[in-house]
Computed example of a mutant assay.
Amino acid sequence: MHTLKRFVQNNWVGYLFITPWLVGLIGLSAFPMGFSLYLAFTSYDLFSAPKWIGLGNFIEMFHDPKYTGSVGVTLHYVLIAVPLSLLFALAVALLLNKGIRGLRIYRAIYYVPSLFGGSVAVALLWRQLFGGEGLLNSLLHLLGIEGMNWIATPGTALYTLILLSTWQFGSAMVIFLAGLKQIPHDLYESARIDGAGTWKQFANITLPLLTPILFFNLVMQIIHAFQAFTPAFIVSGGTGGPLNSTLFYTLYLYQKGFAQFQMGYAAAMAWMLLCTIAFVTSLLFATSRTWVYYQE
């Protein structure tokens, strides 16, 4: 007891300074998360008291065709959009690393789309671009090609969103470029003396030393892709159409929680998403030992 009293006397000033942070942590993070976890096991519609139903929401998920469909759409999006974004980001970073003139200008130009990643304006622009009378179809018409309403066709709607995600590769590109700047030039000079060509230098020097950066970008891009919402909401008008081809997991969560007022079900979906992201991230960290190379 004496030790505890002494500890408080010696540290009360520090606790006083971090009080605003503690209030924010408890009031804006810890309590809402705990309450949402409780709601995940209840039936709650905002207008009546939560009713405890145990695992009812989680059981209902796997009997809900729209839920399983949203999982499939989201996985499809993640498995294509993330590799394409990283590929373009790395390719552009390699080009910009050649010491060309106006490097800062080019870097800014490629980075600008990432600044508007989740903006409504860009999603609206994308909707106009790939609509039935959009710019893309106008260009195709000049070439004598009959276009289509790309965002209203089930086979192409999702790929327009994948293209949007790929176009916004700027943040990953900047991080790749920073990593390339840290690779010692002596290694390339030694490789050239030994007769190694450009491809061998990339495969044996650049890529291995860049794997920590690649790992970081991969984790961040996967998390971001699983949470994608605004493009699908704006392009599909909030419906996830056509024929649920753009019904992202987060969009269906929104529909359940804020359109149908099934807050318990939506909370359960949110926790399933959190667990999925945590599992995928843990899996990446576990497998990183086999392919991520640290110079030391």
Rank of each mutant, 00 (worst) to 15 (best):
L135S: 04
L136F: 14
N137S: 02
L140C: 06
L142F: 13
L142N: 11
L142G: 09
L143S: 13
L143N: 05
I145V: 15
E146R: 15
G147T: 14
M148F: 07
M148Y: 10
M148S: 15
W150G: 13
W150D: 10
I151G: 03
A152P: 01
T153V: 10
G155T: 12
T156G: 12
A157G: 04
L158Y: 00
T160Y: 10
T160W: 11
L161C: 03
I162V: 15
I162P: 02
L163M: 13
L164S: 06
L164H: 05
T166H: 10
T166Y: 12
T166A: 15
T166S: 11
W167K: 09
W167P: 01
Q168Y: 04
Q168H: 03
G170R: 14
S171K: 06
A172L: 01
A172G: 04
V174I: 15
V174P: 04
I175L: 08
F176Y: 15
L177E: 02
A178K: 06
G179R: 02
L180W: 05
L180Y: 01
K181P: 01
Q182T: 14
Q182W: 03
Q182H: 08
I183C: 04
P184W: 03
P184S: 02
H185F: 10
H185G: 08
H185N: 11
D186M: 02
D186S: 15
D186T: 15
L187Q: 12
E189L: 09
E189W: 06
E189P: 01
S190I: 14
G197C: 06
G197F: 04
G197A: 06
T198Y: 13
W199H: 05
K200N: 12
A203V: 06
A203G: 03
N204T: 12
N204I: 00
L207H: 07
P208K: 10
P208T: 06
P208G: 06
L210R: 01
T211F: 02
P212R: 08
F215V: 09
F216D: 06
N217I: 13
L218G: 00
L218H: 08
V219E: 05
V219P: 00
M220W: 09
Q221A: 15
Q221I: 00
I223V: 15
H224I: 10
H224W: 14
H224C: 07
A225E: 07
A225W: 09
A225D: 06
A225T: 08
F226H: 08
F226W: 14
Q227V: 03
Q227K: 15
A228P: 03
A232S: 07
F233S: 10
I234Y: 07
V235M: 11
S236P: 01
G237Y: 03
G237T: 08
G238H: 01
G238N: 01
G238W: 00
T239E: 12
G240F: 03
G240C: 09
G241D: 14
G241N: 13
G241S: 11
P242H: 09
P242T: 13
P242F: 08
P242N: 08
L243T: 13
L243V: 14
S245I: 11
T246W: 12
L247I: 00
F248K: 06
Y249K: 05
Y249D: 07
Y249V: 05
L251P: 01
Y254P: 08
Q255V: 08
Q255C: 01
G257K: 07
G257L: 07
G257I: 00
G257F: 03
F258M: 09
A259W: 13
A259G: 04
A259N: 13
Q260C: 03
